[in-house]
């Protein structure tokens, strides 16, 4: 049985296209929660550059907190487990899905329920925040392109909220 048949996604795979913005489900990603006291501790284990500053992203790794990073990668690369080391690497690939908001009204759509000032949210920045009552992680991929990570069980609600807001 193919993976496409086996997977069951909480939202439609057909993008929703409205005036000035489209909402689509990103392809499946591998996701890891990376935890350590310092970026250096993770760099030693992963052998890649890890951003230092909260909000910064580098090579698919977003710094979400002083000891928390999110690695998102399309590749099926083998991850070290960090066994025995003062780090925590946890597979959270299927914890969330990613909705892609794209178009000149992408920021406007997100601001319908997200209280952050996205005019002052630079490309490349990532943060955990909230849309109305639902926790999300936003990653600004471009001026007109946001990735919105949301836990699976909230995804259908968020999709409905986004499409309702985009249709207005």
């Amino acid at each position: 049985m193919s993976d496409a048949l086996f997977r069951n996604e909480p939202v439609s795979s057909t993008p929703y296209v409205a005036d000035g913005v489209s909402i689509s489900l990103a392809a499946p990603l591998k996701r890891y929660s990376l935890r350590a006291r310092t970026a250096e501790a993770l760099e030693t284990v992963l052998n890649v550059k890890v951003p230092q500053k909260i909000g910064a992203t580098e090579g698919g790794i977003a710094c979400l907190g002083p000891d928390e990073w999110l690695l998102r990668t399309p590749a099926e690369a083998a991850m070290p487990t960090g066994a025995g080391l003062p780090v925590a690497i946890t597979d959270i690939s299927e914890r969330s899905i990613c909705l892609v908001l794209e178009g000149p009204r992408a920021a406007e759509l997100l601001m319908t329920g997200c209280p952050l000032d996205l005019d002052n949210f630079a490309v490349g920045r990532a943060t955990r925040t909230i849309y109305e009552t639902v926790e999300i992680i936003i990653i600004r991929e471009g001026a007109d392109r946001f990735h919105v990570e949301v836990w699976r069980s909230f995804a259908a609600w968020l999709w409905t909220a986004f499409t309702a807001a985009a249709s207005h």
Binding site: L64, G65, P66, E68, R128, T129, I130, E135
Partner: peptide
């Protein structure tokens, strides 16, 4: 005390 629960978590 406060927690930045929907942010950095601290």
């Amino acid at each position: 005390r406060w927690r930045h629960v929907h942010g950095c978590g601290r």
